[in-house]
Design a protein around this nucleic acid. Structure first.
Lengths: 259, 259
DNA sequence: CCCAAACCGTGTACGTCGTATACTCAGGTG
DNA sequence: CACCTGAGTATACGACGTACACGGTTTGGG
């Protein structure tokens, strides 16, 4: 029996929150807080102590209010996380980006990566749906603008964008997991190296992994695994964009040959 | 002051759990449970009600024991999740895979995808480090074997494997988020379409998104977004492997020209 | 001008979670 | 046999998200 039509607590209200278009209500006292203040407090907490430290209680405590008062501004923790995600994404700075699609997309990917490196907790937020917030859409806008002069159709452009963000997120999550692997036990490096060594021993002793064992014997893991995450990231990015370039030249050739 | 040398509760013990090499202890009564039984019960729960339903209490309840007795077999919930991840990954069936690297890698990627589709909760487990379990290593073995006849060096092979699993995971997580977006509200489709429509209206009314607005006006979102996840998956996979192929032909050409 | 509606912030409470701690009791080993 | 080891239990603590009912303040409509 909620008031019909008006955005009750459905996803439409979440949209209003994301876009900062909540009509403030005409009656009653002016609130001392605001959605932005709540989100900022939560982000400060996440920056300082990680996403796991972000609880409704602790956010409220950092704002000197009661836990439940947060629910006047935010429907629940899931929505708060969505708001944090969009706020933390920020807006891409396309000023220095080149005009060619490949250079621009490389900048896009690297800038997204720096966002995730500055705020690793963004990668821990479970994405709850397609991008709806203005900041996430701004990144989409930048990506689509970067491809404006390519021979890709709309579906391909979006797919490529999703593929790129997927790659950035994957690499970021891998970096994160490596850090977590260290933080799990107190003294990270030598203990972890010992575990890795024991694992390699098991691989060598087991006949289920002949190829892996051969690579191990050839020194595959002599350096710590994933020594340079940036190199992995760049290599994957290059591979991806090489694939796009191959598609474009193939298409241009076909266009010249067929029509 | 714990017994030195022997794996107390460190990550070395987790390795023993993953590989099923826990020495059972010589004194005392034989336990009615086992690590495998605990992991299987947890997996059954996750299969039936999702990862969120997997709590130590509910796993214990399904085994007709008290909560704390689980800690005799598993150090904690994080490790239990790691065990679930490796167990759910299973072993790749490489019987029908072709000999050429591209076909084999395509099979690898698709088979990984079906694993995630059968057990979507695997994607919700936060990965805590490099793959250490025998099943995950079996997938790695299969991937390395698929590339045995390529001109890629070891580092490139591993990178490509990581890139592939990253792609599979990304697409799986996207599928999952789409399902969750529906489950968040009761009646999914039309309500969600309404939200999407409103978002598009905002995009059109806002001058920050000219390119996006143009694509929208050209009918970009007339069909529901991400209509065919498999198509997205396959396109991304093809792009990736095209990139690899370009690298290989480039390298072969250079080899013919330079040496 | 005044009352009632709207709304902010609070206090309390419930059910759930992971797990630390201290215990009882059965079973194999010296 | 005595004994120690280890399985399973009972209890408890602190934290979590959030439903609910309540006072206090502001403002619009009559």
């Amino acid at each position: 029996m909620g008031s019909p039509g008006s955005g009750g607590r459905g996803p439409a209200h979440t949209l209003d929150l994301l876009w900062g278009t909540v009509r403030p209500g005409r009656r009653g006292p002016r609130g001392g807080l605001s959605v932005e203040a709540v989100v900022r407090a939560a982000m400060d907490l996440a920056d300082a102590e990680g996403l796991a430290a972000v609880s409704m209680r602790r956010v409220a405590e950092s704002l000197d209010v009661t836990t439940m008062s947060l629910y006047r501004y935010v429907p629940g923790k899931d929505d708060l996380c969505d708001l944090m995600l969009d706020a933390a994404s920020g807006t891409p700075d396309t000023a220095g980006w080149p005009d060619d699609w490949r250079g621009a997309l490389e900048h896009l990917a690297r800038d997204m990566r720096t966002v995730f490196r500055r705020r690793p907790w963004v990668l821990e937020i479970p994405i709850s749906g397609p991008p709806l917030g203005p900041n996430n859409l701004a990144w989409m806008e930048a990506g689509l603008a970067a491809m404006r002069n390519t021979a890709l159709d709309t579906g391909e452009r979006i797919r490529l964008l999703m593929l790129l963000t997927g790659h950035v997120r994957s690499e970021g999550q891998r970096d994160l997991s490596m850090e977590r692997a260290g933080a799990r036990t107190g003294v990270a490096p030598q203990e972890w190296g010992r575990v890795y060594g024991e694992m390699l021993g098991r691989v060598l002793a087991d006949d289920r992994f002949p190829t892996l064992a051969r690579h191990v014997r050839e020194g595959m893991f002599d350096s710590p695994p994933e020594a340079d995450p940036d190199e992995d990231f760049e290599a994957g990015l290059a591979l991806l964009l090489d694939g796009v370039e191959a598609l474009l030249t193939r298409r241009a050739g076909a266009g010249r040959a067929d029509g």
